[in-house]
Amino acid sequence: MANIDVFVPSTLEEAVAFLAHHGDRAIPIAGGTDVMIDTRIGRISPEWLVDLRALSGLSGIEYDANGFRIGALTRIRSIELDQGLRQRSTALVEAARVLGSVQVRTMATIGGNLCHATPSAEMPPALLVHHGIAEIAGPDGIRSIPLGQLFVGPGHTSLEPGEILVRVTCKAANPSSASSAGSCYLRQTVRWAMDLAGVGVAASIEVDEAKVVSGAKLALSAVAPVPLEVDVVSDMLVGKELTPQLTKEVGRVAAEACSPISDVRGTAEYRRQVVAALVPRALYIAWLRATQNWPVGKLAPINGVLSEEE
């Protein structure tokens, strides 16, 4: 790195003003696990790194009756180990546990994972199936957008100069109520650790008293330039009982809906087949959780292949 200076703002307003003034000559840094590599290999060459870590109020996980809020500076490791999230959004915990290594998860933040906008990132699909809303601070104050609108393309977000992602708000069933929702994140990789997703699949299912599906969401990573929401899943599943044939059909439709590339982690055609295989498993595990047929807090196998007793 060539003599990059570090600015440490003491307030969010100060950080916003500094970033707005310096444009792309200044890059926010939190955990540093992406920014430090990007600066070292010359993918970005900022004059300033703006250290957000000391900003107060941007870290932590809060719950209410409708869901949860995660501050942008919350570490991936904190998400992985949070027992409340494990009950409310198993998908998010399952996505957190496969990101990088223990060391990387200890450093990396959820805000960084989202704003780096890697198509294969783990956090976006898991948050999208929980109706994630991104809260963004900027020169004109705070604005909120559906999380999906944050992603523009590989490495590109819709954040304007001076804007900082501060929080993501999600919907999730309260575990103390008669819980009727479940979610799941599965991933295909060559290695279990320190690898990017070949394909990532997040699913959430809500059911009514008769176990009829009343809500369904599906989101994929690593198979399109941005995290991909498969909206048609709602039309295909709501009002019906989940059957193996139905989940397979959703998998087939999802495989058609995505636009993967061929790279070192797999060909486009292979990725489509993996989508078709993972989607039914993710939907089924989310459904098992929604119908209380899954041990509370137990995480699924990373590729969703269940053993006999499961």
Partner: peptide, 12 residues
């Protein structure tokens, strides 16, 4: 807590 010190700015 374990971190990779190559990606950790000392000032942080």
């Amino acid at each position: 807590e374990p971190v990779v010190s190559c990606l950790q700015l000392a000032c942080q």
